[in-house]
Structure formats: structure tokens, C-alpha cells
Design a binder for these strands. Structure first.
Lengths: 143, 143
DNA sequence: ATTCTTGCAAATCATTTGCACTTTA
DNA sequence: TAAAGTGCAAATGATTTGCAAGAAT
């Protein structure tokens, strides 16, 4: 049932649903943890031993072009990925555990926050860094 | 006069003002264009032929540690730098000319935009991408 | 003389590219 | 069987690391 849905969804977006593409999309669907290419690779390599990182790069680039996935560049050295999410939201990166969390944004304030006179804005990103709840609690316990 | 100021400023921040460090800091002071390491290297290599990129990396890392410079990770593949600026502001990256512009933010809305319950936020970044005024006008002319 | 700074060369890491093999319609 | 998809191996580009030579106190 689920596999059928993903295949259809890809087809609707003019993407041929190869096995690799389906599994990569399903990974993103089931793990909303903003993975990078290595995380996806490690997760799928046992199941698809022939899988190469090139294919993951190719696939994600295709997904981004077709607007069903978006890139998150919250860290300087790597690109992370998530399903395309039309609801505006921000990202919080924990300095300790490196996890990235989705953050709800106030729709109105978001649009009024910046004075972008003359510039044509296509995308807006709201990134926060600090320490997440879990890591804060772990720190407390140590003391 | 200016050189003396920079040297003193570095000393105040517990940084020994070597020639390279002074010139790199002065570059950032005089060019508020959010350069990456290569841009700084190209700008200084004629004047300091022995300069290496390693030194620029070392120096910028030191400046960031000492909180007089900040990193801007608006693009996935490179780190750009700017003087540390305590006034909250955002960045706009033009997809055409790749320039990065500072953007004024509404102080109040900025703080109320996100519901970060339980998370300890240390830094917030507001990034916008699109087409800048100049490039928009160039596009119009072509038509 | 000891410590700090510089910078070369090599290593690393994420990503891209060229190309040949395989799969699929 | 032509077109599309995959994946190996090499290339690229940004950044880091190890280390030796040079400068400063």
C-alpha cells in the first residue's frame, strides 16, 4: 500500500519510480530527521548493497528540482535534506547532539520581519542554534 | 592612525597583532562584502606574497573564537565571513550575482517570530534568497 | 631559549563529473 | 534498442592537519 503511494506520488511529479528512488523518498518520509547523504546511505546500504552515494546525490538533486524535497544549509560543510514543506517553518540545530528540529513560525511576523525593499525574495530561511531540551537536561544531571 | 587602531583593537581582544592578522582584519573592515577565504586571499596576495590560505583559515578561526568575526553559512558549500555585528540583521543572497547583502530586521518581530519552547537559543540567522535590485533591473533591460 | 605564528604539503570530507554498464519501456 | 538510470573511479573544491622553519618576546 505504502509503496504504491510513493510510486504514484513520484509519477505525479514526473519522476520515474525506480527502486532506489522509492526507497530514498520513503526514507525521508519515515525519518523526519533532516539527514545528509551519508545518513541515508548508511540506512539503505544493507538493503541495497549496490547502492552508491552518487545515486543518492543524483536522486536528491532530482527531487529538489521537482520540488518535492528541500535542502537545508544550516551547517557550513554539509547539505541536509527534508521533504518539501510548504508551511513556513524554521530549523533549530543543537550544538551538542547536532540534531536538527523543525520550529513553528508566526506567519504574520515572519513576513514583516525584514524590510527587503527592491529585492525579489524567493526563499526565506530561519535558523536557530543553541542547546536542545534533552541536552540541557543531560547537562543539569551532570552537576 | 587606522593601523594603530586595529592593532589596539586586536590586543584588547587578546590577539597578537601580527601583520597578517592586521591586514585580514582591515580587509574585513574596509570591505563589507561577506568574503570567503579565496576572496581575501586574492585581495592580499599581491601585498603579502608569502601569504597562505592556511594562515587566513587560522586567523579567521581565531577571530571567530574571540568573537570579533562571525561566520555566514548561507550557501551549502562555503563559509563567508563578516565583522561581528551585535545588531540583529539578516542576509540576502542574490541567486544571480551571488552577492550577499545585510538586511535590517524588526527587532520585536524577530524575537517573537518563533516558539522555541524549552530550547536555549544562542544564535539566530535570517537568510533570504532571490534576485537583488541591480540584477532585477539588468533582467528588465534585456527584454 | 622558549613560545607563538606562519605556511607548505598532504590529508580529509562533501560533492561533482566522466563514463561505462545495466535496466526498462 | 534507444533512452533513462545506476554506480565506480577519478576529479574538484573547501577546509583541516602535521610539521618544520621563521619571528617575536
Amino acid at each position: 500500500m505504502k509503496k504504491l503511494n510513493v510510486a504514484n506520488y513520484l509519477l505525479e511529479n514526473k519522476i520515474k519510480p525506480s527502486y532506489q528512488r522509492k526507497r530514498i523518498y520513503e526514507y525521508l518520509l519515515e525519518h523526519r530527521n533532516h539527514p545528509n547523504v551519508n545518513v541515508i546511505y548508511d540506512a539503505l546500504i544493507d538493503e541495497i548493497p549496490s547502492l552508491s552515494k552518487t545515486t543518492i546525490y543524483n536522486t536528491l538533486k532530482l527531487f529538489v528540482q521537482k520540488n518535492i524535497v528541500e535542502e537545508i544549509t544550516i551547517e557550513g560543510n554539509e547539505i541536509r535534506y527534508d521533504l518539501y514543506n510548504p508551511n513556513s517553518h524554521g530549523h533549530f540545530r543543537c550544538d551538542i547532539c547536532k540534531n536538527i528540529y523543525d520550529i513553528d513560525l508566526d506567519e504574520e511576523k515572519k513576513d514583516e520581519i525584514a524590510d527587503l525593499k527592491g529585492f525579489k525574495v524567493q526563499k526565506a530561511y530561519y535558523h536557530f542554534k543553541g542547546v536542545c531540551k534533552e541536552c540541557l537536561e543531560k547537562q543539569k544531571k551532570k552537576t
